[in-house]
Amino acid sequence: MDFSVLLTDLPTLVVVIIGVPAVLAAYIVGGEYLVRRLPDKARPSVRPWIWVAPALLLVAGFLVAPAIGTLAQSFEDKNGAFIGFQNFAAQLAGFPTGGAWIAIRNNLFWLIFYTLFVLAFGLLLAVLFDRVPYESVVKSLIFMPMAISSVALVVIWKFMYAYQPPGQPQTGTLNFILNTVFHQDPRTWIQDESPLLGLFPLNDMALIGAAVWGIVGFSLVILSAALKGIPGDLLEAARVDGAGEITIFRRVIFPLMMPTVVVVGTTLVIFALKAFDVVYAMTNGNYHTDVLANRMYQLLYNSHDFGGASAVAVILLLTVIPVLIFNLRQFRAVEARR
């Protein structure tokens, strides 16, 4: 690698390393200086703003401004002319298979199954591992996929789902098991849209399954911490009160974990709505596995349909905001109870 660029840019580097803290320090000192010159009464109300202002500026510049820009763009055509709700109309046209509807349907699947499976497995594993020796080792193993990038995760799962025509040796783990243990023909897990249990497309579930594997450690660790936070006395009291282990879980443990379950659940709902990487890397939205985030990306970079992409982004944003607010409130409630 050529590091000489570092040398030629040395003056810039020095300016950045010294300059940025210097500007910050000057801001703080200057701000304090101005605050001190204010009348005593005004100081407490002004001072917090001096400290919060830099963060507010950053949020405004990098978050609020682009969001407003996106919102504006969603009402414009390719040439920047205002066209009202036409972009939205195009995205929401042709129900149930046209426009963004497949993506919306799939996001709904993600929302339900991804959230449900991650919570259910996380809870189950947290309760089971609570009584296992070497608990931390086992938990680390489950947590490990969290450290893998989504693209690597997809590579792993492509091996799991790999397909060879019937009669040939199966290299995919699932098809191998299907073939040798259950003596069935291999399936094309990623392409196969035939409904599972007569309801949900198999390939959607396969994508969700891979994503669940990647995130279940997250819910396991948080739910496990919540479980550990329940005082042992309570469980003993319930035992003496005549409750069996399942009743104890249902009546004592689960209700006490509920606030945490809700926080993890709503976080997962947000993850599900934002689902992109697994879909992008595994199918690129083909075989009717598209989701909103991937559709937005495709519209933007492949079709150069800025208006359409912005419209999808706005739809996504509007769906996430209520969940986000609920999540924050719930999180605050959990914290307040500590």
């Binding site: 005082p231 006395d233 309570l234 003993e236 009291a237 319930a238 035992r239 003496v240 009160d241 005549g242 409750a243 069996g244 009546r251 004592v252 209700p255 006490l256 509920m258």
Partner: peptide
């Protein structure tokens, strides 16, 4: 423990925090 027909008062009281006083007493 659940089949011994004994009642116990714990040092920490071990009340079920998510249940009302009534439900705490009704639980056993």
């Amino acid at each position: 423990a659940k089949d011994r027909d004994i009642a116990m008062v714990f040092q920490s009281y071990a009340l079920y925090p998510h249940m009302s006083v009534y439900d705490n007493m009704a639980f056993p």
